[in-house]
């Protein structure tokens, strides 16, 4: 016998689209959107793939120890389609990543902004900005700076 529960979900228009940035699973569920953290180190690996890309970074801590960070990024297809300058992200280079940290795992985060050693900023403006640009027939512009 079915027993009705009183749980009802209501999500308004644009509810899904508001979760731009990662197609496959919830950023909010895994990462703390309200937190921002900068890490600076040497890029040891860059995996451009689906359903997530990953950056790996060795970061020298204040006490001299080295922490190895795993930083998630968008899908390969999204990053390419949105015109993110991926060629400028090179293994062996030093860079700073502004990220939102994992809710559960140490030294894991989701990339928001990459700042290269020469000051070049590389970022994915996200699905909403990409969609707006398509609708308007304009170039993709990030709606707000993250740093």
């Amino acid at each position: 016998m079915l027993r009705p529960a009183d749980r009802i979900f209501i999500v308004g228009a644009l509810g899904l689209a508001a979760q731009s940035g990662v197609a496959h699973h919830s950023v909010s569920g895994n990462f703390d959107r309200d937190a921002r953290h900068d890490i600076t180190g040497t890029l040891t690996a860059f995996h451009l793939r689906n359903p997530h890309s990953h950056l790996e970074l060795d970061v020298v801590e204040d006490d001299g120890t080295v922490s190895h960070w795993l930083v998630e990024w968008g899908t390969r297809n999204d990053l390419i389609r949105r015109g993110v300058d991926l060629d400028s992200v090179r293994v062996g280079d030093e860079l700073t990543i502004t990220l939102i940290p994992s809710r559960r795992l140490e030294h894991v985060g989701y990339a928001r902004v990459l700042t290269l050693a020469d000051g070049t900023v590389v970022r994915d403006c996200g699905f909403a900005a990409f969609r707006e640009a398509l609708l308007a027939g304009t170039e993709v512009e990030c709606e707000e700076p993250d740093r």
Binding site: A5, R7, A17, R131
Partner: peptide, 27 residues
Amino acid sequence: WLQLSAGRPSATLTHAAEQAVAEYVPL
């Protein structure tokens, strides 16, 4: 086609679904 919007009206869960949702671990 590319998504412009997504809207969802209400759904009422059975007890079995309530339990399933409570036990769901995304990762």
